[in-house]
């Protein structure tokens, strides 16, 4: 009997404690800086090194590059860049290997749509997703020549 009364006491005390729930859809949730949300992609920085495609554990990234239109510059520029968010697990490996921080994480996480097709995001959409970009990204930046072609953003 005593244990039950103690329990009743605990629940009564908790009744007047401040509430811990968030008013989420009305008030946006603030995520810490390191939060792994939807990627932001900057086509101007990309050097088409293909590392993100190779490291992706779920093969959700696909990209194609083309020769740099400027005949004086070497290397390639990005033509298409798609991330399939149906299978992306937001594991952070692509941003980890990207040497130029072309693909970085943002704090945005709202991905729900009415159609699965809408989860296939192209480079324009990813470029437009430019809010709340994470400040620290690549772990071991590899010194590469500054990407050529296009203006740095």
């Amino acid at each position: 009997m005593l244990g039950l009364i103690k329990g009743l006491n605990v629940t009564l005390k908790n009744m007047v404690k401040p509430k811990v729930t968030y008013n989420y859809p009305q008030e946006p949730l603030e995520m810490p800086d390191r939060f792994r949300g939807i990627q932001y992609f900057d086509p101007d920085k990309c050097i088409v090194c293909n590392q993100c495609v190779r490291v992706c554990p779920t093969d959700c990234i696909s990209l194609t590059g083309k020769k740099n239109p400027d005949p004086n510059q070497k290397g390639k520029v990005i033509e298409t860049y798609n991330i399939n968010f149906e299978i992306c697990i937001l594991c952070d490996l692509c941003t980890e290997v990207c040497p130029t921080e072309a693909v970085v994480m943002t704090n945005n996480f709202e991905l729900s749509t009415y159609s699965r097709d809408e989860l296939f995001k192209n480079s324009e959409w990813l470029f437009a997703n430019d809010e709340n970009i994470r400040s620290e990204n690549t772990l071991n930046p590899i010194p590469v020549k500054k990407p050529t072609g296009g203006t740095p953003s």
Binding site: N14, M15, K19, V20, T21
Partner: peptide, 10 residues
């Protein structure tokens, strides 16, 4: 409501 308050919800 009451159970919510007891459980830290509203």
């Amino acid at each position: 409501k009451v159970i919510g308050w007891i459980q830290g919800r509203i």
